[in-house]
Amino acid sequence: MEIAFLIEKVAIVVILFVVTLTIAAYSTLAERKVAAFLQDRVGPDRAGPFGVFQPLADGGKMFFKEETTPNGANKWLFIAGPSLALLTSFLGSAVIPWGQSINFFGRIVPLQVTDINVGILYIFGVVSLGVYGIMIGGWASNNKYSLMGAIRGASQNISYEIAMGLSIIALLLCTNSLSFKVIAEQQHGINWNFWYQPLGFLIFLVCAFAETNRVPFDLPECETELIGGYNTEYSGFKMGAYMFAEYINMFVSSAVMATLYFGGYNYPGMDFVNLHLGPTWGPLVGVAVLLGKILAFIFFFMWVRWTVPRFRYDQLMNLGWKILIPLAIANIVVTACVITFFDKF
């Protein structure tokens, strides 16, 4: 029994790891393809049909490029920065429920690495650790631009984490649980949290863009002002680690948004499908639906990147502190009032 449990968890972790890496790798291709299509181009199409081997070529290039370390850099922290960024970006996917429990040769396997009852707090903890990768990397580079990028990254993440947390509180008032598994189960069918918390979702979405340092909030990097910001001095695989961390962050935050607000693996007509496909294949359809939602969110991230220009730094701070936080607090108050009203009468 114990051995089977161990094998089951290791299998889920390995599959999740591989899927995350694959999606992150292909996000780099998708980013270029989406950019190209939005700009009336075709994008990379030489490596294999439609450029499907482009990520492999890019990865190979990353490995074989010369890695330079600046003279004045702190050697140890210079390596620790990208490692930490990559590590923390991977950790987030552990609590996401990828589907209903599946019947695997007579054994009920929950499609989740671990169901901790404070899953949301865990995600927030891990995500806020991500900023250390940026800060340490920017600091260790001993470069003015990198330091500027690191400072921007830190202050941006701090200010947006508050609004993000507040928008989640309103959601928690509706769900009464911090466990991702419970939250996903509550959104059975089309009973998604988005219908109850549209404003909360909007705030969360904006904050997710800021947390993952994507355009229009890519101020820690911004090539045009800071020449790459915190990763100015990085090359080769360390640079690749930062890039990968960004795409994995995007994947994880898409998964969190899909699970918290868009029903996770739930979809209308799931009972019918489960009844006809049985307990093994039915949940797998749910997994596919969740992956579809995640990919849609990733596309949305890229779509916004090639539409909206970057915010100025003071605009970013204004938006975070003066608009999003009051809005999120108002959202909490209204949600609490409505819930109390419906409970009492």
Partner: peptide, 19 residues
């Protein structure tokens, strides 16, 4: 304004490619 802009960029997905 942002949604309008996103609509414009999305329509470009289906335009003839200049490549």
């Amino acid at each position: 304004a942002i949604f309008k802009g996103m609509g414009i960029t999305f329509m470009h997905m289906f335009k003839k490619k200049e490549t």
